[in-house]
Design a protein around this nucleic acid. Structure first.
Lengths: 333, 333
DNA sequence: TGTTAGAATTTTATCGTTACAATTCAAAGT
DNA sequence: ACTTTGAATTGTAACGATAAAATTCTAACA
């Protein structure tokens, strides 16, 4: 592969001039630029991005850590980040933390060691204290879907509390009052916030929160089936089930039907996230939209603005969930 | 950040010695090694991976191009590749091609310009000729889920023809004979092969392939709904529907029910890929398992073996699909 | 014609490693 | 004590670009 030396030789100009035409920023006369461009074309020259990185102390790469590479939720998120960054000529290095503290820390270390210019994290297991500490380091860190105290400017987050509220409120408005709730893992901030919203809606409507209609799930299909199983076996009365994400809702639907329930007549179910598949469950899932793709774009824009100094980036740090009404919740009256 | 130079100073040894303890391969006396290790620890030294790459002409990164970052299928694939590579200390640079020729070429160019040590491609729109040409270049290229003529050693592929055969055969065995087929885009090799398998099974059973019970879908939910709509509106008789992937099957299920069909009584449906969600459709989707996560691992192993010279890698180039029987296909008799 | 400012270009140092040839060292053999 | 030999270690030159200072042009103006 041709190097910048050969280009400069062929074009009869110095290294620096070639470098300057590559980096378009500073001025080169049209005549010279053309000579250089011709030489580059003739040699099939491609800048060596590694040498560029070493010399400029910029890797043009952004590290991304998500919990899982598969899964509809993270897919949308990565797609958003990648699209935005790719358009700006940056590349993404993706790794995953599996929602486990050690693996998340590991992944972060890994990305740091790869000399990313910034990292965007969707971490769930690691503590706020750790993150605050991390931010004191040299590597710029941004957070997706998580609000870390005092680091608001580095966070792109969803108002999960509001989402939880919306979900419960919408079910209440349909006349339900005995409502079961399957939460995500309690250590996850998303879960906690959604649950808080649920409780607020209950309180607003003077309905007591019942421990026996609460189940801590795992945000996966199994959480939904296990939770519903638990409620059914406890012989309690409830006409609606709120699941803290769509995967659990879908697990609950499958399990419910296996148990002979007619849905949504016997039980109304609402999810959270509005993953693509939500419209293909039966009944079609009423849920709370989580604009995670948009949020991915926004996280990328934040990096573009702060790290790569791109202008004209208007940043929204906080996103709002909205209710998506489909068929899985019916009016009780 | 401390450099190797400072480490060598503090340890009182040369640059080269430090470099050798970092790269564990060549011999250093235990005493010296310990001195260096201590110095590294004291300084909190971390090798600069970019400088390493420049000097060694190795970036320790593998480029990956998939059609989409979201979507259950690609998620599993990326997860497999990443897990394997990450365990070996390599990182992945991921980008996507959206199944469009220009974007795929663009993505490939992009990855090449990033100095990956190898690239793993899941491309659909680009021609074999282009790929054969690409392989003549300096960058090692591997293919996921695609068999390129003459490049077998670089491919990890699924026997799609067999999968198509299996799907149709299993439906035939349940007594169906009027079978509709919704294919993927005809330009995609996967689609073509699955369809070929379908036709072979039909032929084996002396059933004529009917153009009017064939629809070219898009591998997305809409393909399934549009296809089924088309068949229903044409007023033809058919008792089973084969969809070339699970997304389309799920779209068809949703649409079918909207049209008042009772599934699977009125219509048996089978999918392909066995995405996670397939077990949560209603009825639970009978489908063909596509071991794409395993294949991802294998593609990564292939790179580890060929490029990074890791021993003890046994490679399987070709994978076989298997039938997963659930509830969406019933016996017609 | 001679200045001079500003643009265009070149020179030289540097980024933090690895690679390789050259050198030193230590133990064994004569 | 003196080679020999292979292992351990060192010195120095890349790797391919960017950055900043230094220099040369160019054209306008006095």
């Amino acid at each position: 592969m041709a190097t910048i030396y050969e280009v400069s030789n062929l074009a009869g100009v110095s290294l620096a001039t070639v470098s300057r035409v590559i980096n378009k920023n500073s001025r080169v006369s049209d005549k010279t630029r053309q000579k250089v461009l011709d030489a580059m074309a003739e040699l099939g020259y491609r800048p060596n991005s590694i040498a560029q990185s070493l010399a400029s102390n910029r890797s043009n790469s952004v590290g991304i850590l998500v919990s899982e590479l598969h899964g509809p939720f993270f897919g949308q998120m990565m797609a958003g980040i990648e699209a935005e960054l790719r358009a700006a000529g940056k590349h993404v290095i993706i790794t995953c933390g599996h929602s486990e503290e050690d693996k998340e820390k590991d992944g972060i270390e890994f990305l740091i060691s790869r000399n990313c210019d910034a990292i965007i994290l969707h971490v769930e297991a690691v503590s706020d204290a750790y993150l605050i500490d991390l931010c004191k380091g040299k590597m710029p860190v941004y957070f997706m879907s998580r609000l870390v105290e005092g680091l608001n400017d580095n966070c792109i987050s969803l108002d999960n509390e509001l989402g939880g509220y919306l979900a419960t409120q919408s079910v209440l408005e349909q006349g339900h009052s005995a409502i079961a709730y399957i939460a995500g893992p309690e250590f996850k901030a998303d879960s906690k916030d959604r649950l808080a919203g649920h409780k607020r809606a209950l309180a607003d409507n003077n309905i007591a929160f019942s421990d026996t209609l609460y189940f801590e799930g795992d945000f996966k299909e199994t959480g939904g089936s296990d939770g519903l199983k638990c409620f059914i076996e406890s012989k309690q009365e409830f006409s609606a089930l709120i699941c803290a994400n769509d995967e659990m809702a879908s697990g609950a639907i499958t399990y419910g039907r296996e148990q002979g329930l007619s849905l949504p007549k016997d039980l109304s179910i609402i999810g959270f996230d509005n993953i693509i598949f939500a419209r293909h469950t039966y009944p079609k899932l009423t849920t709370i939209d989580n604009p995670v793709n948009l949020m991915g774009h926004m996280a990328a824009k934040l990096v573009l603005k702060n790290i790569y100094k791109q202008k004209d980036m208007s940043i929204t740090h906080s996103f709002e969930p909205t209710l998506i009404t489909r068929d899985s919740v019916i009016n009780k009256s």
